[in-house]
Design a protein around this nucleic acid. Structure first.
Lengths: 143, 143
DNA sequence: AGACTAATTATAACAATTATAAAGTAATAA
DNA sequence: TTATTACTTTATAATTGTTATAATTAGTCT
Protein backbone atom coordinates (compact mmCIF):
# COMPACT_ATOMS: atom_id res chain seq x y z
CA UNK A 1 0.00 0.00 0.00
CA UNK A 2 1.27 3.39 -0.85
CA UNK A 3 -1.17 5.09 1.52
CA UNK A 4 1.54 4.89 4.15
CA UNK A 5 3.81 6.90 1.88
CA UNK A 6 1.06 9.41 1.30
CA UNK A 7 0.42 9.82 4.99
CA UNK A 8 4.10 10.22 5.67
CA UNK A 9 4.33 12.88 3.00
CA UNK A 10 1.32 14.68 4.40
CA UNK A 11 2.70 14.63 7.92
CA UNK A 12 5.89 16.01 6.50
CA UNK A 13 4.01 18.88 4.89
CA UNK A 14 1.92 19.60 7.96
CA UNK A 15 5.02 19.92 10.05
CA UNK A 16 6.34 22.41 7.57
CA UNK A 17 3.15 24.40 8.06
CA UNK A 18 1.62 23.59 4.70
CA UNK A 19 -2.14 23.34 4.50
CA UNK A 20 -3.48 20.11 3.05
CA UNK A 21 -6.18 21.07 0.61
CA UNK A 22 -8.10 18.50 -1.43
CA UNK A 23 -6.18 19.53 -4.52
CA UNK A 24 -2.84 19.13 -2.81
CA UNK A 25 -3.85 15.77 -1.50
CA UNK A 26 -4.88 14.62 -4.94
CA UNK A 27 -1.74 15.87 -6.66
CA UNK A 28 0.44 14.21 -4.07
CA UNK A 29 -1.51 11.00 -4.26
CA UNK A 30 -1.24 10.95 -8.01
CA UNK A 31 2.50 11.53 -7.87
CA UNK A 32 3.05 8.75 -5.40
CA UNK A 33 0.72 6.20 -6.91
CA UNK A 34 1.50 6.67 -10.56
CA UNK A 35 4.87 5.06 -10.89
CA UNK A 36 5.55 7.27 -13.85
CA UNK A 37 7.12 10.71 -13.77
CA UNK A 38 4.31 12.92 -14.96
CA UNK A 39 4.46 16.41 -16.39
CA UNK A 40 2.39 19.17 -14.82
CA UNK A 41 -0.06 18.89 -17.65
CA UNK A 42 -0.45 15.16 -17.24
CA UNK A 43 -1.28 15.65 -13.59
CA UNK A 44 -3.74 18.35 -14.53
CA UNK A 45 -5.49 16.09 -17.03
CA UNK A 46 -5.47 13.10 -14.71
CA UNK A 47 -7.29 15.06 -12.02
CA UNK A 48 -9.78 16.99 -14.08
CA UNK A 49 -12.32 14.24 -13.52
CA UNK A 50 -12.19 14.75 -9.78
CA UNK A 51 -11.62 18.50 -9.93
CA UNK A 52 -13.32 19.89 -13.00
CA UNK A 53 -12.58 23.44 -11.93
CA UNK A 54 -8.97 23.07 -10.99
CA UNK A 55 -6.63 25.45 -12.75
CA UNK A 56 -3.25 24.58 -14.22
CA UNK A 57 -1.78 27.23 -12.00
CA UNK A 58 -2.82 25.21 -8.98
CA UNK A 59 -0.83 22.27 -10.23
CA UNK A 60 2.24 24.39 -10.82
CA UNK A 61 1.87 26.25 -7.54
CA UNK A 62 1.62 23.09 -5.54
CA UNK A 63 4.39 21.30 -7.33
CA UNK A 64 6.53 24.26 -6.33
CA UNK A 65 5.33 23.96 -2.74
CA UNK A 66 6.19 20.28 -2.70
CA UNK A 67 9.55 20.99 -4.24
CA UNK A 68 10.34 23.57 -1.60
CA UNK A 69 9.36 21.07 1.07
CA UNK A 70 11.80 18.63 -0.47
CA UNK A 71 9.13 16.08 -1.31
CA UNK A 72 9.30 16.40 -5.05
CA UNK A 73 12.05 16.84 -7.57
CA UNK A 74 11.78 18.55 -10.92
CA UNK A 75 13.38 16.69 -13.79
CA UNK A 76 14.40 18.73 -16.80
CA UNK A 77 15.36 16.61 -19.73
CA UNK A 78 15.64 17.56 -23.34
CA UNK A 79 11.94 17.56 -24.05
CA UNK A 80 9.81 20.61 -23.70
CA UNK A 81 8.22 20.13 -20.33
CA UNK A 82 9.50 19.30 -16.88
CA UNK A 83 8.63 16.06 -15.19
CA UNK A 84 8.09 15.60 -11.50
CA UNK A 85 9.32 12.81 -9.31
CA UNK A 86 8.60 11.95 -5.72
CA UNK A 87 11.82 11.73 -3.79
CA UNK A 88 11.72 8.55 -1.82
CA UNK A 89 15.15 7.00 -1.76
CA UNK A 90 18.20 8.07 -3.70
CA UNK A 91 18.04 6.84 -7.24
CA UNK A 92 18.97 7.78 -10.75
CA UNK A 93 16.90 7.53 -13.92
CA UNK A 94 17.34 5.61 -17.09
CA UNK A 95 15.42 6.97 -20.05
CA UNK A 96 14.35 5.24 -23.24
CA UNK A 97 15.45 7.12 -26.36
CA UNK A 98 12.70 5.51 -28.34
CA UNK A 99 9.54 5.79 -26.22
CA UNK A 100 10.59 8.19 -23.49
CA UNK A 101 9.83 5.86 -20.60
CA UNK A 102 11.68 6.69 -17.38
CA UNK A 103 12.72 3.90 -15.06
CA UNK A 104 14.24 4.23 -11.62
CA UNK A 105 17.69 2.83 -11.17
CA UNK A 106 19.34 2.52 -7.79
CA UNK A 107 23.02 3.07 -7.47
CA UNK A 108 25.28 4.17 -4.65
CA UNK A 109 25.83 7.92 -4.90
CA UNK A 110 28.84 9.05 -6.87
CA UNK A 111 30.68 10.59 -3.96
CA UNK A 112 34.15 10.22 -5.42
CA UNK A 113 33.12 12.17 -8.47
CA UNK A 114 31.85 14.97 -6.28
CA UNK A 115 35.02 15.17 -4.24
CA UNK A 116 37.25 15.07 -7.29
CA UNK A 117 35.23 17.83 -8.90
CA UNK A 118 35.61 19.84 -5.73
CA UNK A 119 39.38 19.59 -5.72
CA UNK A 120 39.78 20.18 -9.46
CA UNK A 121 37.47 23.15 -9.81
CA UNK A 122 37.52 24.77 -6.39
CA UNK A 123 33.74 24.67 -6.16
CA UNK A 124 31.91 23.77 -2.97
CA UNK A 125 30.00 20.83 -4.32
CA UNK A 126 26.49 20.29 -3.09
CA UNK A 127 24.88 17.70 -5.29
CA UNK A 128 24.81 16.17 -8.73
CA UNK A 129 22.45 14.67 -11.21
CA UNK A 130 22.90 11.89 -13.68
CA UNK A 131 20.73 10.24 -16.26
CA UNK A 132 21.40 7.25 -18.42
CA UNK A 133 19.95 6.90 -21.91
CA UNK A 134 19.28 3.82 -23.95
CA UNK A 135 16.57 1.65 -25.46
CA UNK A 136 14.16 -0.15 -23.17
CA UNK A 137 13.38 -3.87 -23.46
CA UNK A 138 9.92 -3.20 -24.93
CA UNK A 139 11.32 -1.04 -27.71
CA UNK A 140 14.11 -3.51 -28.38
CA UNK A 141 11.52 -6.23 -28.94
CA UNK A 142 9.66 -4.03 -31.38
CA UNK A 143 12.90 -3.68 -33.29
CA UNK B 1 44.50 29.22 -31.94
CA UNK B 2 41.08 27.76 -32.20
CA UNK B 3 40.95 28.30 -35.95
CA UNK B 4 42.20 24.75 -36.32
CA UNK B 5 39.18 23.53 -34.43
CA UNK B 6 36.92 25.61 -36.58
CA UNK B 7 38.41 24.24 -39.75
CA UNK B 8 38.11 20.71 -38.48
CA UNK B 9 34.48 21.29 -37.64
CA UNK B 10 33.84 22.76 -41.06
CA UNK B 11 35.50 19.86 -42.83
CA UNK B 12 33.34 17.59 -40.76
CA UNK B 13 30.22 19.38 -41.87
CA UNK B 14 31.25 19.48 -45.52
CA UNK B 15 31.75 15.76 -45.52
CA UNK B 16 28.28 15.35 -44.14
CA UNK B 17 27.04 17.39 -47.08
CA UNK B 18 26.21 20.51 -45.12
CA UNK B 19 26.60 23.82 -46.87
CA UNK B 20 28.78 26.34 -45.08
CA UNK B 21 26.95 29.64 -45.18
CA UNK B 22 28.33 32.79 -43.59
CA UNK B 23 25.78 32.49 -40.81
CA UNK B 24 26.73 28.91 -40.09
CA UNK B 25 30.38 29.82 -40.04
CA UNK B 26 29.76 32.63 -37.60
CA UNK B 27 27.60 30.56 -35.26
CA UNK B 28 30.15 27.79 -35.20
CA UNK B 29 32.99 30.21 -34.66
CA UNK B 30 31.17 31.83 -31.80
CA UNK B 31 30.45 28.50 -30.17
CA UNK B 32 34.04 27.38 -30.40
CA UNK B 33 35.68 30.63 -29.40
CA UNK B 34 33.42 31.65 -26.58
CA UNK B 35 34.41 29.35 -23.80
CA UNK B 36 30.97 29.79 -22.31
CA UNK B 37 27.93 27.72 -23.09
CA UNK B 38 25.63 30.22 -24.74
CA UNK B 39 21.89 30.08 -25.22
CA UNK B 40 20.42 30.44 -28.68
CA UNK B 41 19.46 33.98 -27.85
CA UNK B 42 22.95 34.88 -26.67
CA UNK B 43 24.35 33.65 -29.94
CA UNK B 44 21.74 35.63 -31.80
CA UNK B 45 22.60 38.81 -29.92
CA UNK B 46 26.33 38.27 -30.22
CA UNK B 47 26.10 38.06 -33.99
CA UNK B 48 23.59 40.79 -34.72
CA UNK B 49 26.44 43.23 -35.23
CA UNK B 50 27.82 41.15 -38.07
CA UNK B 51 24.46 39.98 -39.36
CA UNK B 52 21.87 42.64 -38.67
CA UNK B 53 19.26 40.76 -40.65
CA UNK B 54 19.78 37.34 -39.24
CA UNK B 55 16.67 35.72 -37.82
CA UNK B 56 16.44 33.78 -34.56
CA UNK B 57 15.10 30.88 -36.56
CA UNK B 58 18.43 30.68 -38.37
CA UNK B 59 20.21 30.24 -35.09
CA UNK B 60 17.86 27.51 -34.00
CA UNK B 61 17.90 25.79 -37.38
CA UNK B 62 21.64 25.68 -37.54
CA UNK B 63 22.09 24.58 -33.97
CA UNK B 64 19.88 21.67 -34.89
CA UNK B 65 21.98 20.99 -37.97
CA UNK B 66 25.14 21.01 -35.88
CA UNK B 67 23.52 18.80 -33.31
CA UNK B 68 22.53 16.28 -35.95
CA UNK B 69 26.07 16.31 -37.26
CA UNK B 70 27.26 15.51 -33.75
CA UNK B 71 29.25 18.72 -33.42
CA UNK B 72 27.13 20.38 -30.78
CA UNK B 73 25.31 19.22 -27.71
CA UNK B 74 22.20 20.73 -26.22
CA UNK B 75 22.28 21.19 -22.47
CA UNK B 76 18.96 21.37 -20.72
CA UNK B 77 19.20 22.43 -17.14
CA UNK B 78 16.49 23.69 -14.91
CA UNK B 79 16.41 27.22 -16.30
CA UNK B 80 14.17 28.28 -19.09
CA UNK B 81 16.42 28.07 -22.10
CA UNK B 82 18.77 25.47 -23.50
CA UNK B 83 22.48 26.03 -23.71
CA UNK B 84 24.74 24.76 -26.44
CA UNK B 85 28.13 23.22 -26.10
CA UNK B 86 30.71 22.24 -28.67
CA UNK B 87 31.62 18.62 -28.23
CA UNK B 88 35.36 18.44 -28.24
CA UNK B 89 36.54 15.93 -25.71
CA UNK B 90 34.45 14.07 -23.18
CA UNK B 91 33.75 16.20 -20.19
CA UNK B 92 31.12 16.91 -17.61
CA UNK B 93 29.87 20.23 -16.29
CA UNK B 94 29.90 21.75 -12.87
CA UNK B 95 27.37 24.53 -12.36
CA UNK B 96 27.33 27.31 -9.80
CA UNK B 97 24.05 27.44 -7.87
CA UNK B 98 24.65 31.08 -7.10
CA UNK B 99 25.70 32.72 -10.37
CA UNK B 100 24.93 30.02 -12.93
CA UNK B 101 28.46 29.77 -14.31
CA UNK B 102 29.22 26.51 -16.09
CA UNK B 103 32.72 25.10 -15.92
CA UNK B 104 34.07 22.08 -17.77
CA UNK B 105 35.28 19.24 -15.67
CA UNK B 106 37.14 16.31 -17.14
CA UNK B 107 36.59 12.89 -15.72
CA UNK B 108 36.92 9.39 -17.10
CA UNK B 109 33.52 8.25 -18.38
CA UNK B 110 31.36 6.35 -15.94
CA UNK B 111 31.41 3.09 -17.82
CA UNK B 112 30.71 0.88 -14.85
CA UNK B 113 27.55 2.78 -14.10
CA UNK B 114 26.38 2.26 -17.64
CA UNK B 115 27.03 -1.44 -17.61
CA UNK B 116 25.39 -1.90 -14.22
CA UNK B 117 22.34 0.00 -15.40
CA UNK B 118 22.21 -2.22 -18.44
CA UNK B 119 22.16 -5.43 -16.44
CA UNK B 120 19.72 -4.15 -13.84
CA UNK B 121 17.15 -2.60 -16.15
CA UNK B 122 17.51 -4.60 -19.35
CA UNK B 123 17.99 -1.42 -21.38
CA UNK B 124 20.53 -1.17 -24.16
CA UNK B 125 22.51 1.72 -22.76
CA UNK B 126 23.84 4.28 -25.18
CA UNK B 127 25.05 7.23 -23.17
CA UNK B 128 24.59 9.19 -20.02
CA UNK B 129 24.75 12.72 -18.72
CA UNK B 130 25.86 14.08 -15.41
CA UNK B 131 26.09 17.50 -13.88
CA UNK B 132 27.53 18.58 -10.59
CA UNK B 133 26.18 21.53 -8.66
CA UNK B 134 27.84 23.72 -6.09
CA UNK B 135 29.15 27.20 -5.37
CA UNK B 136 32.03 28.54 -7.42
CA UNK B 137 35.14 30.14 -5.89
CA UNK B 138 34.06 33.64 -6.92
CA UNK B 139 30.71 33.33 -5.20
CA UNK B 140 32.27 31.77 -2.13
CA UNK B 141 34.53 34.80 -1.79
CA UNK B 142 31.54 37.13 -2.02
CA UNK B 143 30.04 35.18 0.85
C1' DA C 1 -18.84 36.23 14.37
C1' DG C 2 -15.21 39.11 12.43
C1' DA C 3 -10.51 39.86 10.81
C1' DC C 4 -6.76 37.97 8.67
C1' DT C 5 -4.14 34.91 5.93
C1' DA C 6 -3.56 31.54 2.50
C1' DA C 7 -5.23 28.84 -1.62
C1' DT C 8 -7.72 28.42 -5.77
C1' DT C 9 -9.50 29.97 -9.93
C1' DA C 10 -9.71 32.31 -14.33
C1' DT C 11 -7.31 34.78 -17.25
C1' DA C 12 -3.69 37.29 -19.23
C1' DA C 13 1.17 37.75 -20.06
C1' DC C 14 5.60 35.97 -21.22
C1' DA C 15 9.34 33.71 -23.20
C1' DA C 16 11.46 29.91 -25.71
C1' DT C 17 10.91 27.40 -29.60
C1' DT C 18 8.89 25.79 -33.93
C1' DA C 19 6.23 26.19 -38.23
C1' DT C 20 5.14 28.63 -42.46
C1' DA C 21 5.60 31.02 -46.56
C1' DA C 22 8.21 34.01 -49.42
C1' DA C 23 12.55 35.44 -51.21
C1' DG C 24 17.41 34.60 -51.92
C1' DT C 25 21.45 31.80 -52.93
C1' DA C 26 24.19 28.20 -54.36
C1' DA C 27 24.73 23.64 -57.07
C1' DT C 28 23.65 20.97 -61.04
C1' DA C 29 22.15 19.66 -65.60
C1' DA C 30 20.95 20.64 -70.12
C1' DT D 1 25.14 30.05 -70.09
C1' DT D 2 20.63 29.41 -68.81
C1' DA D 3 17.20 26.65 -66.56
C1' DT D 4 16.09 23.80 -62.93
C1' DT D 5 16.38 22.23 -58.54
C1' DA D 6 17.29 21.94 -53.81
C1' DC D 7 18.74 24.30 -49.85
C1' DT D 8 18.96 28.61 -46.67
C1' DT D 9 17.62 32.55 -44.78
C1' DT D 10 14.35 35.80 -43.44
C1' DA D 11 10.17 37.65 -41.45
C1' DT D 12 6.38 36.56 -39.12
C1' DA D 13 2.90 33.94 -36.94
C1' DA D 14 1.67 30.12 -34.08
C1' DT D 15 2.47 27.00 -30.27
C1' DT D 16 3.53 25.67 -25.88
C1' DG D 17 5.11 25.50 -21.08
C1' DT D 18 5.16 28.39 -17.32
C1' DT D 19 4.39 32.44 -14.41
C1' DA D 20 1.94 36.68 -12.82
C1' DT D 21 -2.30 39.10 -11.55
C1' DA D 22 -6.57 40.02 -9.56
C1' DA D 23 -10.75 38.39 -7.74
C1' DT D 24 -13.00 34.89 -5.13
C1' DT D 25 -13.19 31.31 -1.83
C1' DA D 26 -11.87 28.79 2.16
C1' DG D 27 -9.49 28.11 6.42
C1' DT D 28 -7.57 29.83 10.90
C1' DC D 29 -7.46 32.49 15.12
C1' DT D 30 -9.02 35.37 18.87
Amino acid sequence: MSSAKINAAIDNLKEAGVRITPQRHAILEHLIQSMSHPTADEIYKALEGKFPNMSVATVYNNLRVFKEAGLVKELTYGDSSSRFDCVTTDHYHIICDSCGKIVDFHYPGLDEVESLAESVTGFDVGRHRMEIYGVCPDCKRKH
